[in-house]
Design a protein around this nucleic acid. Sequence first.
DNA 1: ATAGAAAGTCAAGTATATATTACATAAAGA
DNA 2: TCTTTATGTAATATATACTTGACTTTCTAT
Lengths: 68, 68
Amino acid sequence: MSKNLSVKSARAARDMTQKQLADAVGVSRQTINAIEQGEYNPTIRLCRAICRALGKTLDELFWEDDEQ
Amino acid sequence: MSKNLSVKSARAARDMTQKQLADAVGVSRQTINAIEQGEYNPTIRLCRAICRALGKTLDELFWEDDEQ
DNA sequence: ATAGAAAGTCAAGTATATATTACATAAAGA
DNA sequence: TCTTTATGTAATATATACTTGACTTTCTAT
């Protein structure tokens, strides 16, 4: 899996740390880090929570064209 | 979780059975059924595969406004 | 009326998303 | 320097996404 720079930059735009985003969506800091690093494959419910916290859409933060 | 009628109707619009969609995205028929029934919370990778198979976006098939 | 396909459901197993604890490193400020 | 904060990473544990196999129900067609 490739890194998720969209989440990382949307978080930076809101001046939030990984910990703050994690608390806002109710997961651990390591989970946010792993998602940004592309180490796993979050559930759609968590993706929606991240979108709400960052004021973005699913397509903006979680679409990928280059997936087979 | 609530039913996912967007997936169900996009699948119907393409005249695909649950089995055909399951084969197209590489999961079991029961998994597609469970997603349509709202029984679980698929991963984003599977959501993207379903979007590609049905020619829809994440926002069209998997956004939900009424989630806290 | 009957058969066959599609959909819905359930139980038991496997794979993996996520938590917890912990440690290392880099950057920034005092 | 020393301390603090943010980040990256790893090991072990748990919850749950997903599989497999089987059964029932509903729909459509013959």
